[in-house]
C-alpha cells in the first residue's frame, strides 16, 4: 500500500512538471498538456478505429515477443549444454543486441510486407535479450543442487520444476519484463517506418505529418499502457503457471 502510494506520488510529481512546462511553453504543437492528452485519449477510446489499431499492433508485437521468447530460451538451453552451439551463436547474439532497430526495419522491408514488419523486428529484438538473460541463469545453476537431487533421487519432472525452474525463473521473469517493454518500443518504431495500414505506427506517423501533437501523445500513452498491461498480465500468468508446476 505504502509502495503504491509512493509510486503514485512519483507519477503525480512528473504530471505536474509536465503540466507546468506545457503552460509555460503555451504551444499545443510543441508540447500539449497532460489534461489535453487525457481528453484526446478519451475521444479516441470510443472509436472503433482506435481498438482496431490496438488489436492490429498488439497481435503482431506480442506474436514477435512470444516467438522471440521461445527462440531465446531454447537457444540459451542449447548454448548452455553444447559448447559448439555457444561458440557459433554467441557472435550472432552480440550483433543482434547492437544493431539499431531502424537498420533492422529498413532491411526487413526488402524481405517482408510492412504489416508483418513488427513481428520480425520484435522477434529480432527479443531473442538476444531473452537468450542472454537465460544464459546467465543457466550459467549460475548451482551444481551442488544437482548433486542433492541425485542423492535424494528426485524424479525428473519434480527435479525440473523444483531444482532448475526455481533457479531460472527470476532470470526468465526479468528477461520477459525487459523484452515486453522493448517489444512495444521496437514494434511501434518499426510500424512508424513501415507504416502498415491500421497500425498504431501509422497513427503515430500521421499525427507527426499533420502536427497533431495531442494525437501523438495520446497514441504514445496508449503504447505505454499496453506495454505495462502486457507485462503485468504475462508475469501474472507465469507466476500462476510456476506455482501449478511446483505443486505437481
Amino acid at each position: 500500500m505504502k509502495k503504491a502510494l509512493l509510486i503514485s506520488a512519483g507519477i503525480l510529481f512528473w504530471l505536474i512538471v509536465w503540466q507546468v512546462a506545457a503552460l509555460a511553453i503555451d504551444s499545443s504543437i510543441l508540447l500539449v498538456s497532460p489534461l489535453d492528452v487525457i481528453k484526446r485519449l478519451g475521444e479516441l477510446i470510443i472509436t472503433a478505429d482506435f481498438w482496431q489499431s490496438i488489436l492490429f499492433s498488439s497481435c503482431r508485437i506480442m506474436l514477435g515477443f512470444f516467438i522471440g521468447l521461445v527462440t531465446g530460451t531454447v537457444l540459451a538451453v542449447f548454448m548452455g549444454k553444447f559448447r559448439v552451439i555457444r561458440i557459433i551463436f554467441s557472435p550472432l547474439i552480440s550483433v543482434m543486441k547492437s544493431i539499431p532497430v531502424a537498420s533492422f526495419t529498413i532491411l526487413a522491408l526488402f524481405w517482408i510486407r510492412s504489416e508483418n514488419l513488427s513481428v520480425l523486428v520484435t522477434f529480432l529484438i527479443c531473442t538476444p535479450i531473452v537468450c542472454s538473460n537465460m544464459q546467465a541463469g543457466i550459467d549460475s545453476l548451482d551444481p551442488k543442487l544437482k548433486e542433492m537431487a541425485k542423492v535424494f533421487k528426485i524424479p525428473a519432472l519434480r527435479r525440473f520444476s523444483g531444482v532448475y525452474l526455481s533457479q531460472l525463473m527470476p532470470y526468465f521473469r526479468s528477461a520477459s519484463a525487459l523484452a515486453i517493454g522493448l517489444s512495444w518500443k521496437s514494434g511501434a518504431a518499426a510500424e512508424v517506418i513501415g507504416i502498415p495500414d491500421g497500425s498504431i505506427g501509422e497513427k503515430l506517423f500521421m499525427s507527426k505529418i499533420y502536427l497533431e501533437t495531442a494525437d501523438l501523445f495520446a497514441w504514445t500513452a496508449a503504447v505505454i499502457l499496453l506495454s505495462l498491461l502486457c507485462e503485468k498480465l504475462f508475469l501474472l500468468v507465469v507466476g500462476i503457471l510456476q506455482k501449478k508446476i511446483e505443486r505437481m
Binding site: 548451482d142 543442487l145 542433492m148 542423492v151 535424494f152 533421487k153 533457479q167 525463473m169 511446483e246
Partner: peptide, 27 residues
Amino acid sequence: KPISAVFQEDRLCENLTVSANIRLVTG
C-alpha cells in the same frame, strides 16, 4: 539402498519455500 543427506552446505533451493523444499524430496 535409498539414501538421504544433510550436506556440509544446506543445499536448499533458495527461491522455494521451506515446505516446497521438503516436498521436493518427499513428494
